[in-house]
Nucleic acid binder design. Structure first.
Length: 418
RNA sequence: GUGGGUGUCGCCUAGCGGUUAAGGCGCCAGGUUGUGGCCCUGGAGACCGAGGGUUCGAAUCCCUUCACCCACCCCA
């Protein structure tokens, strides 16, 4: 084995994965565009402040998973750990608030989190995400959820479960956190060390603890839904009514709390029914406080991100493979004159829109035909010195059909014609 | 960050103290002169993840380290 390897938790995408990868990106892009969402690409590196100010100091992402570094000019940069804050930064920087609202954006690309790798969890991960910025209504939440669902549907993952919750506004949440602390305080001793830690850092997460899942104090914990303000409640009911109207199936799950600080109101996750470890395929939420925390005016927003590796993992589990654009032909050059004629023929066919692999010169005809057969191409185009001298080609169908000799200028028509 | 498992040719695997480290797939070349898919023959390709020990002798035992896998934490 080579002594140099890809960095831990980072993977190479190999040619055999190309078809499925491209299928996922193309499908997601197509569906997003059908909702009038458009691509935004932001740098892979951002000023650290973009994430430090928005994501939340005590979130794991900021406290221990960010790749932070200084560039040669002393700039304090971060490899982006997530997309929303970066898109919000771009929205502000480019004055998108003066475009027609809401602004509908999608993006995809690599993100980085220094975390221990595991099934479906990588240090370099790829996400596809969308953001709808500038619309405070429940309809915006439901639009992006519907878009997300449509992408999964188009990919063949229509059976994913949508679990959804409302965490109200920041004020609501703070009030609820106080209620929760009061509730858990007498039971702290009986909870796991993790939950005891969360009591201080993020009480909400105790509700989502796997270790304490069956604990009576968790089971009869007060629900955030009972602590929503009137405004929160109106939004929340609006979301549910619209989802129901669209016949989008969902489950209310009050344990969904989201790890990032900027979320408010609606939060959701899509998961396969047979949920395992790193099972969440895509998750999102409303982030009305985000742009303010970047120094901009109060601006509502909602969106989601989905892990491309997790999508691919689930597609593979269901036996879905991408379909490779099939190779039309392979040339079989023989001799020096044949090599020249074959190369000219190949470029002619490519210009006509066909995909053509050049055969390896200097190899025996038998070796070349074996290789052509293994390539999956439909035709072998044999051009030896004899053919070259007379401007001819032997067109050999690789499915066993009869070989035909034709003039070079007839080949394009013969291969594109039918 | 915590706990468990695994590392032998490109891929899958055998070997588990003394073997020229074996096989399958794949790759390359042949099975008479320019015709594939099946079959047959041959070849290339591994200092057994890396570094230290133990031993007359280690892929096989021990330690360290790195990587991968699985779970927790967290998250997409």
């Amino acid at each position: 084995m080579a002594d140099l390897q890809a960095p831990r938790g980072m993977n190479d995408l190999l040619p055999e994965d190309e078809a499925l990868w491209q299928h996922v990106i193309d499908t997601a892009t197509r569906v997003a565009r059908s909702f009038d969402y458009h691509l935004i690409r932001t740098p892979i590196v951002e000023d650290q402040g973009v994430f430090l100010r928005t994501v939340g100091d005590d979130s794991d992402i900021v406290s221990k998973e960010m790749y932070l570094f200084e560039d040669r000019g002393g700039g304090r940069l971060a490899l982006r750990p997530e997309g929303t804050a970066a898109v919000a930064r771009a929205y502000l920087e480019h004055g998108m608030a003066s475009r027609p609202q809401p602004v509908r954006l999608f993006y995809w690309g690599p993100f980085f989190r220094y975390d221990r790798p595991q099934a479906g969890r990588y240090r370099e991960l790829f996400q596809f995400g969308v953001e709808c910025i500038g619309d405070p209504s429940p309809a915006a939440d439901v639009e992006v959820i519907d878009l997300q669902r449509s992408i999964y549907e188009a990919l063949g993952l229509g059976d994913l479960t949508l679990r959804i919750n409302s965490i109200g506004t920041a004020e609501t949440r703070h009030r609820y956190e106080a209620v929760l602390r009061e509730h858990f305080l007498p039971h702290l001793e009986g909870l796991s060390p993790d939950s005891q830690r969360r009591f201080d850092t993020n009480v909400l997460r105790i509700l989502d603890s796997k270790e304490d899942a069956g604990h009576p104090a968790v089971l009869d914990a007060p629900s955030i839904l009972d602590h929503l303000s009137e405004e929160d409640r109106a939004h929340w009911e609006g979301v549910q009514a619209l989802l129901t109207g669209l016949e989008v199936a969902f489950e209310v799950d009050t344990r969904i709390v989201r790890g990032l600080d900027y979320y408010a109101h609606t939060v959701w996750e899509f998961e396969p029914a047979d949920a395992g470890g790193q099972s969440t395929i895509g998750a999102g939420g409303r982030y009305d406080g985000l742009i303010e925390s970047l120094g901009g005016p109060h601006t509502p927003g909602t969106g989601w991100a989905s892990g491309l590796e997790r999508i691919m993992l689930n597609l593979r589990e269901r036996g879905v493979e991408g379909v490779d654009a099939s190779l039309h032909a392979v040339t079989v050059p023989l001799g020096e004159a044949g090599a020249v004629a074959a190369a000219r023929l190949a470029s002619m066919l490519r210009e006509a829109g066909l995909s053509v692999r050049s055969g390896t010169t200097g190899r025996s005809m038998r070796a070349q035909l074996r290789s052509a057969d293994a390539s999956g191409a439909r035709y072998a185009l044999i051009v030896g010195d004899r053919e070259a001298a007379e401007g001819l080609v032997q067109v050999k169908p690789l499915d066993g059909g009869d070989q035909r000799e034709m003039r070079i200028d007839e080949v394009v028509a013969a291969l594109t014609g039918v």
